[in-house]
Write a protein that binds this DNA or RNA. Structure first.
Lengths: 223, 223
DNA sequence: CATAAAAGCGAGTGATTACTCACTTATTAC
DNA sequence: GTAATAAGTGAGTAATCACTCGCTTTTATG
């Protein structure tokens, strides 16, 4: 009775209420933009509403006209990114595309996946920063991230992997381990490019880095 | 001209000042323990000094008797973990061991590395949580982490990799890409075990998971 | 045992926090 | 054109923040 809304319910409910940017006032857009900037720089808790107001060129009261609490701003910032990440796995017609693609060699599928996700991350760097930061503390956000994005991706990926194993294209390893390898390589790619090793990464183009990563994923590093 | 202390200087200086737990008073140990608990649960900024005092069973004034500011507590919490992570790459005699090991097959070296680091993470879960969380915002911590731990590890690993390539044990890939593959697999292993996929991970033992990961790293997933 | 230093205390500090509310200005609907 | 609704304001609020300081208690030293 009255059990708290699950990941999908909570998120999707919020998504329903999500306004399109076009139907916001100028000031409201400024508030969001300022919040993204400050949250990404100093974190949610370290950014005060008075700072946000100043950065947005708005009275502090205006903020609470649009968002009933500070945390509400965070959700408004984070939800769209979560949706973008989750979308490919939620939307049915994209699943269809995935099915069509299942005929392609696994290497090509993964290459396309890495390319796609890398672009997504680069284009939404700040938002993703905020999303990850806050996923550390806010259970709702972390659970939404894992349940919505990760679990769905896992199910789809493992199906594909098992099919490819049956087709003799991949080695008969536990699909769990293969999925981890695919995802790890992707995370590593993003992490090195964006955080850890920017300089050395740039010695090759994105396309080359992806190709090397897929090559190693498929064929290993041993001679 | 008064240039800011580099990673190693700054860190090592702080480490010098690090008290051993044994030479702390009961209350001071309680303060640290309480801080670790709260920082891990709610983050640094969201934890107030009054909460820490209450959790530690101590007057708020006592905290500032031992730590001159709240941020000082964070550094006292984080520094020992940073040292643990960095130690293998800083200590010279460990480098020697690494040289001896260089004769072993690459797969064995990596297996040992994964085993070692996985234990480290499991044994220091909360501290590492705090370290990563705060590395997002505090430049000093992030830079210490990258400069001290990552860069040193990279240099050592790439030397080893290049030696193994020359010896014909590894494929002649850019050592950068190989290093990324090795580290990505390790991060993925930890991430799946601790955060993303606890349940399914447990279907195999740590030792089995490591073995599969190394197998995939060396030989790839393709047939 | 005497004395000094360190550890511990908690009421009190000004600054800042998220948020409210009575009010004004702009937009929409008929 | 006027009534109603929404958007915007900024002074004000109680609570909380990190931190201080005068004081007491404990521990170490000779």
């Amino acid at each position: 009775m009255n059990k708290p809304p699950s990941f999908a319910e909570g998120l999707l409910q919020y998504v329903e209420e999500l306004k399109d940017e076009s139907e916001m006032t100028e000031k409201q857009r400024n508030i969001l933009r300022a919040s993204v900037k400050l949250f990404a720089e100093k974190g949610f808790h370290a950014s005060s509403t008075s700072e946000i107001a100043k950065e947005a060129g708005v009275a502090e009261g205006t903020i609470f006209r649009h968002y009933k609490s500070k945390k509400d701003i965070l959700l408004a910032v984070v939800a769209p990114v979560l949706v973008k990440f989750a979308a490919p796995f939620i939307l049915k017609d994209v699943r269809e595309i995935f099915k069509e693609r299942a005929q392609k060699p696994f290497g090509e599928i993964v290459t396309e996946l890495y390319r796609n996700r890398l672009n997504l991350v680069v284009a939404n760097e700040k938002h993703i920063r905020i999303l990850l930061q806050e996923a550390f503390f806010h259970d709702e956000i972390r659970e939404a991230l894992i349940s919505t994005v990760f679990e769905d991706a896992k199910v789809m990926a493992q199906k594909l992997i098992e099919a490819k194993v049956d087709a003799g294209e991949l080695r008969p390893l536990p699909s769990q381990a293969v999925f981890r390898a695919v995802l790890s390589a992707m995370i590593g790619l993003v992490l090195f490019r964006q955080v850890l090793d920017k300089d050395d990464y740039a010695a090759y183009s994105d396309e080359e880095q992806i190709a090397m990563t897929v090559d190693i994923l498929l064929n290993g590093i041993a001679k």
